[in-house]
């Protein structure tokens, strides 16, 4: 197994992944399943599902899975390096350019408009996530509790994450889940 091929393939996935999340599935399917034959569609869905429910960026988690399957631990690291490589290059170039133009009034107006759009995009993301993440009353209470507390208290999100993982186990054991 050529590590260079692994790196290049995942760099391609990185470039073609616009926005992450579900947008990545067809691109992985084409590059990893069809062209390289490194995993089956079923394996890909498994990796993706676990990648979604483990910490970190889903694209990175999926890359590590496939890289490890193809070439062991080193493969996992190389695939991850490949998938983040385009981001690092592209963002550094754009950030470098933008920081030189940040003081121009037109650029500031443009970003003021863009920020409005970002509000709407985040709202839409929340609505979409809400459907999958809040199936019953127990989850509803957790979601609202986290929202309200994190708006009013300057707590680290880490606190909420640990609390909610424990709450999830407790609610399931108490039989509240699904009601």
């Amino acid at each position: 197994m050529n590590l260079w091929t692994l790196f290049v393939s995942f760099a391609k996935v990185g470039v073609l992944t616009f926005g992450g999340g579900y947008a990545m599935i067809p691109i992985l399917e084409r590059e990893i399943v069809d062209q390289q034959g490194w995993a089956s569609s079923e394996e890909l869905m498994d990796y993706y599902a676990v990648g979604q429910c483990t910490p970190g960026v889903i694209a990175v988690n999926t890359a590590t899975f496939i890289g490890r399957k193809v070439a062991g631990t080193v493969g996992g690291v190389v695939a991850t390096a490949g998938v983040v490589f385009p981001s690092v290059v592209i963002i550094c170039v754009i950030a470098g350019i933008l920081s030189n133009f940040a003081d121009i009034p037109a650029v500031q107006s443009a970003f003021a408009g863009i920020r409005v759009c970002v509000c709407v995009l985040i709202f839409n993301a929340v609505v979409k996530l809400w459907k999958a993440a809040v199936p019953d009353k127990g989850a509803l209470v957790l979601a609202l509790l986290v929202f309200i507390l994190s708006v009013f208290l300057k707590l680290s999100p880490v606190v909420f994450v640990i609390f909610c993982a424990l709450a999830g186990i407790l609610l399931t054991r108490l039989g509240v889940r699904g009601k």
Partner: peptide, 24 residues
């Protein structure tokens, strides 16, 4: 246990993202 923890983590994630959205 993993499954039960994620039952709690998913709404947590939504609540946190919504709160971050409010900052924007």
């Amino acid at each position: 246990y993993v499954d039960a923890a994620f039952y709690g983590l998913r709404p947590c994630s939504v609540g946190l993202i919504a709160a971050a959205g409010l900052m924007v």
